Amino acid sequence: MYSMSLISGYICDKCVTKNIMSIANIRRTANSIGMVLPSLILIGFGFVSSTPIAVTTLVLCLGLHSGVHVGFHINHIDLSPNFAGPIMALSHMFANLTSLLVPVLVSFIVKNDVTNQSRWRLVFIVIALFQILTNIIFVVFVKGKVQPWNFHEDEEMEKDDDKLVLDKTNKIVTKEVRNSTEKEQ
């Protein structure tokens, strides 16, 4: 997963710098690769009976799942560099709270028959469908630009000691350039 995260990050950076795709479309594509493909592999995993094939499918599943790091994980910074930390904390809190439901789901479906492969298949299908659903929600609502609520009031900007800021077109400029363009408008 670590290696695949580096590779997917490099590919996505190249797509941005060469203007092949917009940031929002890169986030959509990477997140879909990281959620939908592993979901399909997870469903297939439920039908595998060979140990080497099972290990291979899980490794492939986790390797492809690294696409979410270039998808929704980094999108917090796209939306609001000033508030990325709190936004990331909230989204990860909800993600981790839903993961607490997995043992409940497994105990409800598998019950005491942990060797029953058809029951485990159902668990993997439910988890895969949940991943696909959440990916669809992300793909529909993703934004790749800094949102207006990211910016502080002008008085707060003048008190800020940082030399570089983001303008409303999502470009990094010096504070003096931003102030002069705002006065011209």
Rank of each mutant, 00 (worst) to 15 (best):
M21H: 13
P86W: 12
E184D: 15
C15Y: 08
T51K: 05
P38R: 00
I137C: 04
E155F: 12
Y2G: 00
L79R: 13
T57E: 00
E156W: 00
S3K: 07
T181L: 06
D161E: 01
T56R: 02
G71V: 09
D78E: 10
K111V: 03
L64W: 01
L37S: 13
N31S: 11
C15A: 07
P103D: 01
P52M: 05
V70Y: 05
S8K: 00
T56V: 13
L97V: 15
T51W: 02
V68Y: 01
P148R: 12
V36F: 04
F83H: 10
L101W: 01
C61H: 08
I132H: 07
Q117D: 10
P86M: 07
W149Y: 13
V106P: 04
L60F: 13
V102W: 03
M1Y: 02
L6N: 00
N135P: 02
L60I: 15
F83D: 07
V126Y: 02
V36Y: 03
P52D: 06
P103R: 00
D162R: 04
P38L: 05
L133A: 13
M35G: 14
L62K: 03
S118R: 12
V55I: 11
L166I: 11
V126M: 10
S8R: 01
N112H: 11
N75D: 03
S22V: 09
N19T: 09
I125N: 01
C12N: 01
T181V: 06
I33M: 01
T51C: 08
I41W: 04
T56S: 07
P148E: 13
G34W: 01
D13L: 15
I125G: 06
G46R: 00
N25T: 05
S39L: 12
V126H: 06
L100I: 15
P52L: 05
E153C: 09
L64F: 01
M21R: 12
H92V: 14
K163R: 03
L100M: 14
M93W: 12
R121Q: 09
G9Y: 01
L164C: 14
K163L: 06
E176A: 04
M4E: 00
I53W: 09
D13I: 14
Q117S: 12
D78F: 08
V59C: 00
L90D: 11
I172C: 15
G63I: 02
E155N: 12
V126W: 04
V102H: 05
T134D: 12
V59H: 00
N179L: 09
A54K: 09
T169F: 10
I125R: 03
I172D: 11
I137T: 05
V68F: 04
A24T: 13
F45V: 05
L64D: 03
S99L: 14
M21Y: 15
Q185S: 14
S99K: 06
S49T: 14
H69D: 04
F72I: 13
V68E: 01
I11P: 00
M157C: 04
G63C: 09
V106F: 10
C61W: 03
R28Q: 09
M93D: 11
S80C: 05
I136H: 14
T181A: 08
V104Y: 04
